[in-house]
Amino acid sequence: MKKVFHYNIIPFFLILSLGGYFLIQQNLTVKRENYLNQSYMGYTLPSKISGLAALEFKGILSDFLFLKVSTFLGDKFIKREMLADKHADYIYNSVDVITDLDPWFWDAYLFADLLLTWDFKKIDMANKLLFKAREYRTNDFKVPYHIGFNYFYFLKDNMNGAKYMMEAASLPGSPTWLNGLGTRLSVYQNQYKPAIMFLSETLKKTHNPALAKQMEIRLNTLIALDKLEKAVQEYKKIFGFLPLKITDLIDKGFVKTIPQDPYGGEFIILKNGRVFTTSNMIHKQKKSN
């Protein structure tokens, strides 16, 4: 009879422990979240080690690491958290390792390029990675195209910009409009047009919806800036001087409305007639980490 009793209480204890497990699991999840928020995951295993440890699974490891980096930073973007220099270093180091594992991995190069240039203004880092890509992706027009764009748009170096644009134009598969772009670059200096072309072309081939949305916002802002700048130029042509405020453009009928800056900044007219936004196309930061 004792045996029977013994077996009867097992389910009871099982339910009790399952309840306990559930509570602990929930508690642990919260604790773990706090831990992860507090600790910074900016370390990267050098490729000398990870490359050896990956054995013949280097390709899939590069995918995994890239996924880790992009979700980590994507999370920061969604939460509008401040991105500091350490994040730029993290991106650079990680993508360097990822592209040691798979030196042809264009997704990783491009990811680093877009973030390091637009968001961190670390053009030298971005170009360093792009030059690495150029060693391997020898037949890919996109690599010199991005290098050229960085030179032209961010570094204001027209000579190098033109050089790499022309290199891109000579490679197979390059779009026809690229052909003239190299020579026309100087015409576009101090204009938003090349950036709009660049972004819309990149956007067309981007699958990841979160990233595509980011780029779309940026593209729309650039289009708005371009539109306003043209209006300012016309204003100057007619009146002989620049408008004082951006709203003058509505008052005088050059534009119907002033678009909203999705980044939360305000559009301002500079003394040289260029239009900028106070947000500098970076999301307003919520909190620092």
Partner: peptide, 20 residues
């Protein structure tokens, strides 16, 4: 599933995973 998380090298990722 994993492929949809990448930007554009979807062919590379799917080949990587399958070969691995």
């Amino acid at each position: 599933v994993v492929v949809s998380m990448f930007m554009r090298d979807l062919d590379k990722v799917s080949v990587d995973i399958n070969l691995s």
